[in-house]
């Protein structure tokens, strides 16, 4: 079970988080000033296209890489400022699963060894109770206890992802980062992994940062959704609000671009096809980094970078958006109806 430390204080707070990489020819601004809060037991979806920096955020949230600046606070403790030894001691409180479970499970160890390792390292249960606990964890993720004796290559992709979830949750973390956990799976298998993440979260109560490029998976699981573009968060909203009334023009075109599995509805949709492609994070545009592709961009968008600010909608719910064209009530002009030619 998640440890309840200080009531409803958030589990994770990212403050002005920055990760820059120096490469020949310049600086890659992978994450460029991100603020995000995840409450206890909350599932926050982080959506964005490739290169938006969403995976880099996930890795910083679990101290796999350290930020260039800013802070990652878990229960109020800044992981980035802690000595390595103390971070190690905190590792049982957060964990991560990746797209490819093959890369996070050692192919030469049995499933049982992989799951029991965190139990031994963090001394979660007495040595004599480890096998019993492994069996419980396997059942919790829908695998038979005798799976413990098998090797990862003997399992299907869906089963391997279940094993990596069991391992990630073995020490009872308060925070689970799931980085595209279903993206490598066939759709029929994706469904059962999505159900499993939802069930585990319900039963165990951990908070979850669910990272995906798949809008339907994000909508299915998340309570709140943050949208990233070029290293920045451009919108954070309750999942219903985000899908029904997207505020940022980028969120809008992203939703319009994802085809719906209904030919009549899909062919009747109006959609704006974006100009060009995501600019390089080595050389982000001036002002709002979305302005060169935005059908609504004005002069202020070209010159002034919009801050992520809180708005209050007519229904009373609050949200955050980084766009000059959205009013304090969360409303903005509609995108032009005709599709913008590519190029």
């Amino acid at each position: 079970m998640a440890e309840q430390q200080n009531g409803d204080a958030p589990v994770l707070v990212l403050r002005d988080l920055v990760k820059h990489y120096q490469v020949p020819g310049g600086t890659v601004r992978s994450v460029d000033g991100v603020d995000l809060v995840i409450g206890r037991g909350e599932i926050v979806g982080l959506v964005g296209e490739s290169g938006s920096g969403k995976s880099t955020i996930g890795k910083m949230a679990v101290a796999l890489i350290s930020p260039s600046s800013g802070s990652v606070e878990l229960d109020g403790v800044d992981l980035a400022a802690l000595p390595k030894r103390r971070v190690r001691a905190m590792r049982k409180r957060f964990n991560i699963v990746f797209q490819d479970p093959g890369s996070s499970i050692n192919p030469r160890t049995t499933v049982g060894d992989a799951i029991s390792e965190p139990l031994r390292i963090h001394r979660i249960v007495p040595r004599r109770r480890i096998d019993e606990r492994v069996a419980e964890l396997l059942e919790q993720v829908g695998l038979r206890p005798d799976t413990a004796a098998r090797y990862p290559h003997e399992l299907s992709g869906g089963q391997r992802q279940r094993v990596s979830l069991a391992r990630a949750l073995a020490a009872g973390p308060e925070l689970l980062v799931a980085d595209e956990p279903t993206s490598a799976l066939d759709v029929s298998v994706q469904a059962s992994v999505l159900n499993l993440v939802a069930d585990l979260q319900q039963n165990l109560g951990f908070a979850c940062l669910f990272i995906s490029h798949d809008l339907s998976a994000i909508e299915y699981l998340a309570d709140r959704i943050a949208v990233m573009y070029l290293g920045r968060i451009v919108e954070v909203a309750d999942r219903r609000d985000l899908f029904e009334r997207p505020m940022h023009p980028y969120t809008d075109v992203l939703l319009q671009a994802a085809p719906v599995a209904d030919p009549v509805e899909q062919r009747g949709r109006e959609r704006v096809v974006l100009r060009g492609e995501i600019p390089s994070p080595m050389n982000p545009p001036s002002g709002c980094s979305f302005h060169p592709r935005c059908p609504l961009a004005t002069e202020v968008c070209r010159t002034t970078e919009p801050a992520l600010r809180t708005v209050q909608r007519a229904d009373g719910r609050t949200a955050q958006v980084a766009c000059h064209l959205v009013g304090d009530d969360g409303v903005r002009a509609a995108l032009p109806a005709e599709s913008v030619p590519v190029g």
């Binding site: 059962s192 159900n195 299915y220 719906v260 599995a261």
Partner: peptide
């Protein structure tokens, strides 16, 4: 099964269960 496995717009885990296709 393929059509039901993908979450539809508006479906959320708190009120809906996806149907996967078990087996291989």
């Amino acid at each position: 099964g393929l059509l039901q496995a993908v979450p539809q717009r508006g479906q959320h885990a708190t009120a809906h269960r996806l149907k996967g296709i078990s087996g291989n």
